[in-house]
Design a protein around this nucleic acid. Structure first.
Lengths: 221, 221
DNA sequence: AACTCTGCTACGGTTTCCCGTAAGAATAAT
DNA sequence: ATTATTCTTACGGGAAACCGTAGCAGAGTT
């Protein structure tokens, strides 16, 4: 089993239960930090003293507080950690369920496992750690199923820009100016109308208000 | 200290750390369930056998799975539990941070404490349980700060009805019919316009889209 | 009962948005 | 180079939303 494990998780109770879960697995007593910057420092020191960590378990989103951090999120931490120690195994433990985010982690960040904070997360953590120890990838099963969203629209940068401007209060007729200044094209008013219509049609809406509410719900804005 | 505590929390690791936190406090070994329906059943049985619980610690949002539940969320659980045992103390432990939701819990559900799942939640849980044991209310400090929302608007039932209709896609000019059918008055189109203007003015907005986004953010809809 | 005060509603003018059509630009195909 | 295709933009009529004004109904006061 892994000998040196580092936990990066800001939520105190989650951090505690991670430690306990690892203890049940027979892993060595893990070390743990509450901030990303600390995590990177510890990883660097461990490499320097030639006792590097075997596994990093990290959350994705950390809350800001009075301690200003250079690294503010799990993704950046992973990237920085991989630069220091490319062979470090990474297990992400987060509430995030959007497939776009998780796919990116596996493909671009090359993480080794993802467990979502959800009903059976304790069991899945154990399975994940075992799998990773055997040099396999792991994804918690509640996410493998979650691919049923069907009539969702692929929001382009343009779409998001338009919606963001609406949420900012920009009148529709003024959005072309904004798009031109930010070199987003197309920028014509008709194109904006067309794009809004397309989004609403695909999602079965008739008014902008519905679209805004939907985007808020799924976290696009 | 409390003698009988019930934990309702679907996330396995959170459930574990709650148990551990209570153990550190010197509370009796708590009982725990992963579903709201189970929680209510246990509360009922405890009342029936005249060994009622002293404290219920519950999450707000539970995930659906193959076990179909009658009670799907913490708020409904609290309501049902209070009917069975009105003097049951309630501590809500959830990630929710929207003031509208939390205010509702204290005012309408008459809960005794709220701790947000966040950085120092372990410490706050202990403080909360002690406070509740001394018949005081408790709110975790990370939320007290967020309460300084300044130019917030008191949303009336009418306001919420109007906004809900907009989110449903009802054209503004048709909302009067809806209001009349639901015996909400005033129902005139001018009143709706006036109300929308008031809301937007107070919050410094100019367009409905901004208002919808704001309401989504603070959890009014 | 007459009066004020307050709040709801109805009406009209202006602006914005909606939507279809068609002209223009850019890219691809022959 | 010419044609085809696709994408972008411009224009104009009609609908909806916006905004100020004025009339109307009910509650309370004298």
């Amino acid at each position: 089993m892994f000998k040196r494990i580092l936990i990066a998780e800001d939520q105190e109770t989650q951090n505690i239960s991670l430690q306990k879960t690892l203890a049940e697995l027979g892993a060595a007593k893990p070390e743990y930090v509450y901030y990303c910057d600390d995590a990177l420092t510890w990883i660097k020191n461990a490499v320097k003293t030639e006792q590097p960590y075997d596994l990093l378990i990290t959350d994705l989103y950390f809350e800001e507080d009075h301690n200003r951090q250079k690294i503010t999120g799990g993704t950046e931490l992973i990237k920085a950690a991989k630069e220091v120690q490319p062979d470090l195994k990474i297990l992400v433990f987060s509430g995030e369920s959007k497939t776009a985010v998780i796919d990116m982690l596996f493909k671009e960040m090359n993480i080794d496992g993802y467990v979502r904070k959800a009903r059976h997360d304790g069991q899945y953590l154990k399975l994940a750690i075992n799998a990773i120890h055997n040099h396999k990838k792991y994804l918690s099963p509640d996410l493998k199923l979650a691919r049923k969203e069907n009539n969702s629209h692929d929001f382009t940068d343009l779409d998001i820009a338009i919606i963001s401007q609406l949420v900012e209060g920009t009148p529709q007729k003024n959005i072309p100016y904004y798009l031109q200044e930010n070199n987003i094209k197309p920028s014509g008013l008709s194109s904006i109308e067309k794009r809004l219509n397309l989004m609403k049609e695909v999602l079965g809406f008739s008014k902008n208000e519905q679209l805004i509410a939907y985007c808020k719900d799924v976290g696009i804005i």
